[in-house]
Simulated scan of single mutants.
Amino acid sequence: MTEIPKDHPRYAALMVRDRLTEAMWAKLVAPEGLIAQGRGEAFDYLLGEQTTESAARAELAAAAMLLSAERPVISVNGNTAALCAHQLAALQEASGAAVEVNLFHRTEERMAKITALLEEHGVAVLTGTSERLIPLSHDRALCLPEGIGGADLVLVPLEDGDRCEALRRMGKKVITIDLNPLSRTAQTATLAVIDEVTRAVPAITTACRTLSDDEVRALAADVDNRVFLEEALRTMARRLEEVADALE
């Protein structure tokens, strides 16, 4: 990994890039995953590379939904595993959710490597014989009956539009973590957390550990994704105006 000085103004973002690049060479992350990361970074610029007040409220709602679900499952791809395997272990412990690896660019080698990485960091990963249970023509359709196939709620970190739509059509609730409020994933999810994944996952974990039963019931019963999308877009628009005004 490149030596990045900790006083660099974009230290966190550059460390993320390095971890993903290293993971790509280790065949954990598909090369296309680097493109997805770059797209997300562009939207994070518009948020000031920080968790907004709206995103913080969405993270509370996400925790409440996880705790309220009967069969919650966290779906993990290569990028998510490379960036926050240890954070996923904490979220699994706090929420009681199962964890399943699900990939678009699926090979048995990548499935095994990602599973091993997660297990090294303390995640209990569901394994077994996957079946084509999601109505899709590609390999994201493959999942476990005792995992995503039987879940009533799926947490999908990072963009995954067509599967998000398919899961919703199956009657499942979907929480997504996606920096792009315009994506099909964010638009079709039950709840979109518009935040960077390494900020969002620990925030959801903390909420899972601290919300009272009354707070969980109230938050889970009052989720309106349109509100969070609108607030994210307005935040980005205001930031663009502020930057433009500063140039005058």
Rank of each mutant, 00 (worst) to 15 (best):
1 M>H: 12
1 M>F: 12
5 P>G: 11
8 H>M: 04
9 P>D: 10
11 Y>H: 10
12 A>F: 13
14 L>A: 09
16 V>I: 15
18 D>T: 13
23 A>G: 02
23 A>E: 08
25 W>N: 10
28 L>R: 07
28 L>V: 04
35 I>L: 15
35 I>T: 14
36 A>I: 14
37 Q>P: 09
37 Q>Y: 13
38 G>D: 09
41 E>L: 14
42 A>E: 14
43 F>D: 02
44 D>N: 14
45 Y>Q: 12
48 G>F: 01
54 S>C: 01
54 S>E: 12
55 A>M: 07
59 E>C: 11
64 A>G: 08
65 M>F: 06
65 M>L: 15
66 L>I: 06
69 A>I: 12
73 V>P: 02
74 I>E: 07
75 S>F: 04
75 S>I: 12
77 N>K: 00
78 G>A: 04
79 N>W: 09
81 A>D: 06
85 A>L: 02
91 L>V: 00
92 Q>N: 04
92 Q>A: 00
93 E>C: 09
94 A>G: 01
95 S>N: 01
96 G>I: 11
96 G>E: 10
97 A>W: 06
103 L>K: 08
103 L>E: 05
105 H>F: 13
106 R>M: 08
112 A>N: 11
116 A>R: 02
119 E>W: 04
127 T>N: 10
127 T>G: 09
127 T>L: 12
128 G>K: 03
134 I>N: 03
137 S>R: 11
145 P>S: 07
146 E>I: 14
149 G>L: 03
149 G>I: 06
156 V>C: 05
157 P>D: 09
158 L>W: 12
163 R>T: 15
164 C>F: 01
167 L>Y: 02
170 M>S: 04
173 K>M: 13
174 V>R: 00
176 T>Y: 08
183 S>Y: 05
184 R>D: 13
185 T>S: 04
185 T>R: 00
187 Q>V: 11
188 T>R: 13
189 A>Q: 00
189 A>P: 02
190 T>C: 10
192 A>C: 02
192 A>F: 03
192 A>P: 00
193 V>L: 03
195 D>E: 12
202 P>Y: 05
202 P>H: 00
206 T>H: 12
208 C>R: 00
209 R>W: 06
210 T>R: 03
212 S>M: 10
213 D>T: 15
215 E>K: 04
221 A>H: 06
222 D>H: 08
224 D>Y: 05
224 D>C: 08
226 R>H: 10
227 V>Y: 14
229 L>R: 00
231 E>Q: 07
231 E>G: 05
232 A>P: 02
236 M>H: 03
236 M>K: 01
237 A>H: 10
237 A>S: 13
242 E>G: 06
242 E>D: 12
